[in-house]
Amino acid sequence: MNVFRILGDVSHLLAMILLLLKIWRSKCCTGISGKSQILFALVFTTRYLDLFTNFVSLYNTVMKVIFLLCAYLTVYMIYGKFRKTFDSENDTFRLEFLLVPITGLSFLENYSFTPLEILWTFSIYLESVAILPQLFMISKTGEAETITTHYLFFLGLYRALYLANWIWRYHTENFYDQIAVVSGVVQTIFYCDFFYLYVTKVLKGKKLSLP
């Protein structure tokens, strides 16, 4: 465990809690893509099945349970408790365009052809693109609330910090997880455009709106 990994996990947790608090306090989930949140719930579900088969550490187990709870609570807020405020008309990304190729790819390119390992691979590939419905929604409406941009910033920062973690682990432990690294790079690239807007607009006190 290194400092990049810890900061990455904290950033990930912060992002999810920020989103939950935003929805809870405003009692409104307008501008949030329910489809992205469903994908994240699916990511955690398929990745953390090893909770039942493989004990890594208390930290690992506790974080996995918290991530799962946060993901499902967020989905419940959007499609259950505050569904009247859910902007489904702008959440129109076609999920099959992501799910079909990623399912195929996880069967083709994995570490071992076993159900748990294929599901883990599926979750890594899916996570790299799970934010696309959210980014698509923002490009469609042309704006995002500032709190939503903070959420996206920490979510992107998490995977960028994991890149630093992998470089560190490669040099100190000779650890190298090709599937996670390649997907992590792809995932981080999707946030670059957003990072630019976040720094040039949101951090200068302006609302994120697209021309």
Partner: peptide, 10 residues
């Protein structure tokens, strides 16, 4: 890395 040992990252 021993893949059989499982994945230790989140």
């Amino acid at each position: 890395k021993d893949q059989e040992a499982g994945h230790d990252e989140l």
